[in-house]
Simulated scan of single mutants.
Amino acid sequence: MCLIKLPEIRADIQLGDIQFDMRPDALERWDPGVVAADSTDKSISIYGRIGKTDDGTGITANRIGAALRVIGKQDIVVNVNSPGGDFFEGVAIYNLLREHQARVTIRVLGVAASAASVIAMAGDEILMGDSSHIMIHNAWAVAVGNRHDFTEAADRLAVFDAAMAKVYAERSGANAEEVAAMMDKETWITAEAAVANGFATGLLPSSSLSHTEASCGQQKAMAIVEAAMAKAGHTRAGRREVLKTLFSGKPSAAEAAMPRAGEEVALLQSLTNSLRV
């Protein structure tokens, strides 16, 4: 059994305080209903956002680590359909998979964008489904503060970008400068191009994919709303409160005691209307 020796990504723990978020363009292409047609007790599903979410659907390193402990030192299949999310969590999951002491097969069923594309590189074998895509780009985060804060954030992200470029380059065989240029352009790579350019090792038959409608609409709607709010500068805590109200219809105790400001009501109405389009 031949296992690929993959480079470790060393992300400074200080990156953990940066608010990494999903890119809106990744969300637009993501169909949460695309899943594996088959699964076993030796498979792991990475469907949805990378990182913690209030509804518990987010994929975290703790969840993946627990699954790996249950499976033990056996070959595993990791099914991926994710628009990305928290790069810090993505790096942690990548490192867990690269350290697994048996063969890791990654199957990209829909999209492996952003942080999910990093996770996909951890496979000894990377298989692409029909119409699937890998999307690579520079780390995308929300930063708040004065010019010194922004400069510091840019410097910290540059180190992370270089580490990701090294992983993509070693997997594909391209040089780091070529990969960095692809990341700068925020490149979407089709299944066929991924195989041709070394980002993947083969294609999946269409029989490997299935589609489910269960909770797909709300899952994507929540992700789109949160991404829009992040782009508008709302904090993660504030976004979570709005999402709870918008999708559960049950305001928190604090909200019940204090009427919302007119701006927040307008924001909720605007976001709701955008979801109906």
Rank of each mutant, 00 (worst) to 15 (best):
E255H: 01
T272F: 08
K244M: 03
G249M: 00
G238Q: 06
A232E: 15
A253Y: 04
F247A: 03
E263F: 10
S270H: 15
F247E: 01
R239L: 00
E241F: 03
L243N: 03
E255S: 05
L271S: 04
A254R: 09
T235R: 05
H234M: 13
G249Y: 01
S248Q: 00
S248R: 01
A261I: 11
K244G: 15
T245A: 07
A266Y: 12
E263D: 10
E264F: 02
L268S: 08
L267K: 14
R276Y: 09
L246R: 11
V265H: 04
L275Q: 09
S252H: 04
S274P: 00
P259G: 07
R260D: 12
V242P: 01
M258F: 04
L268C: 12
G249L: 01
P251N: 10
R239K: 02
Q269C: 11
L243H: 07
K231N: 07
A232D: 14
G249W: 02
G262S: 14
G262P: 07
S248V: 00
H234K: 06
V242I: 07
G233T: 04
L243W: 05
T235I: 00
L246V: 03
K250T: 13
E264L: 07
S248D: 00
T235K: 06
A257W: 01
R236A: 13
N273W: 03
A266W: 07
R236W: 04
A257D: 14
G238Y: 02
K250C: 06
G233V: 06
S252P: 02
R260P: 00
K231H: 08
P251K: 08
R239G: 04
Q269R: 05
A257H: 05
H234W: 14
T272M: 14
A237W: 03
V242L: 08
A237T: 07
A254Q: 12
N273L: 14
L246M: 15
S252N: 11
R239N: 07
M258A: 15
G262R: 11
R240M: 10
P251G: 12
L275I: 11
S252G: 15
H234E: 09
L243K: 04
E241C: 02
L268E: 15
A256W: 00
T272H: 13
E263G: 02
E263R: 08
A261F: 05
N273Y: 05
A256T: 10
L268P: 09
Q269H: 13
K250Q: 13
V242Q: 02
Q269A: 13
E264A: 12
S252Y: 04
S270N: 09
K244T: 09
A256K: 10
L275P: 00
T245W: 02
F247R: 08
A253T: 08
A253W: 08
A266T: 03
E241I: 06
V265D: 15
R260C: 04
T235V: 01
L246G: 06
L268R: 09
N273M: 13
A232P: 00
T272G: 15
G249C: 09
